[in-house]
């Protein structure tokens, strides 16, 4: 059999993720790319429960659980300790957090860690809400989504503000490498993770990881939905290497899909009216044009 991604598995069977979990796929691909010489810090997120209860774990790498806001600080400390011991060579220090632990609660520790220039890799798997505690809104939740704290009823309607663009925030820190990846494109994800491993200095990766439980769609659609998100330019795949933009999955204008297919396949967008969908489509189009302009102006030669 011809396999397109490395065969080595560092994530065991028997983990506690829901059916069709995008986050567990993201971890599987990332560990395939980084190999066993990896140290990881995980704050409170879905992955704090997925490895299993004490004394069992599904990951074959050293792993430390840290407080919600402290991922950036923890990986900085791990890197500094490895350096002091003279064992940093060949070891990748990874912070792995959900979107809440990255864009809301963990953002100052992350900002500090990358600003100090530690040789750490930060990976955020984005399921667009606090899924572990029961689907509360985070600032990575897109506009128009239902969550338990942005309920849809007679007096209140879905989330009113747009998603925070964390990759741009990270690129604005002037770090060597920031990128987005999706579980529907594992080859691309693994390529980026390997590139990240080779770069000395802080790197940031944002992985799109659909959540069947929170987004209210059947579990078999995980890959289909993340592919649709990229094809309709809701979640474009791009990377920023030393300030140079590059789109990894270019979507031609005639092949670009309308976002309505994406919205209608999920229960969390079920109550959206036509007008809101039009405004969401306009926002997605504007963001895509903005990204293409950036590639035009600051692209790789």
């Amino acid at each position: 059999m011809k396999l397109t991604i490395p065969e080595q598995e560092l994530m065991e069977k028997g983990h506690m993720a829901c059916l069709g979990c995008g986050g567990s796929l993201a971890m599987r691909y990332l560990l395939k790319a980084l190999g066993k010489d990896t140290m990881m810090a995980i704050p409170a997120c879905c992955w704090a429960v997925i490895p299993g209860v004490f004394p069992y774990s599904c990951l074959e790498i050293p792993l430390q659980y840290v407080a919600f806001e402290a991922t950036g600080a923890a990986i900085s400390g791990m890197e500094a300790a490895l350096k002091a011991k003279g064992k940093k060579d060949g070891v990748t220090v990874v912070g792995w957090a959900g979107d809440g632990g990255t864009v809301d609660i963990g953002i100052q520790a992350l900002s500090g860690a990358v600003e100090r220039g530690h040789d750490v890799k930060y990976v955020c798997y984005d399921n667009e809400a606090y899924m572990n505690t029961g689907i509360q809104r985070s600032s990575a939740t897109p506009k128009g989504a239902w969550t338990t704290t942005t309920p849809v009823g007679n007096t209140r309607f879905w989330k009113q503000t747009n998603k925070k663009n964390i990759v741009e925030i990270m690129a604005a820190h002037d770090i060597p490498y920031a990128c987005t990846a999706s579980v529907a494109y594992p080859e691309d994800l693994i390529k980026k993770a390997k590139k990240m491993k080779d770069i000395k200095g802080p790197c940031y990766m944002h992985i799109y990881a659909p959540c069947p439980t929170g987004w209210k769609y059947p579990p078999e659609k995980t890959i289909e939905l993340s592919r649709l998100a990229t094809e309709s330019c809701i979640f474009p795949l791009y990377e920023v290497t030393y300030g140079k933009y590059k789109i990894n999955k270019d979507i031609k204008d005639e092949k670009k899909k309308p976002i309505i297919d994406y919205l209608r396949s999920q229960g969390r967008f079920r109550k959206l009216d036509e007008e809101t969908i039009r405004s969401l489509q306009k926002h997605v189009d504007d963001e895509w044009i903005k990204l293409k302009k950036k590639v035009e102006c600051f692209g790789e030669e």
Binding site: E12, K13, G14, H15, M16, P51, G52, F54, P55, Y56, S57, C58, L63
Partner: peptide, 22 residues
Amino acid sequence: YNSYKELPPSPIATGSSLVFKT
């Protein structure tokens, strides 16, 4: 672990999740 005395000094996971037949 049959007694608390057998527990490791800090909670370090040493087993594999293969015990969970999901």
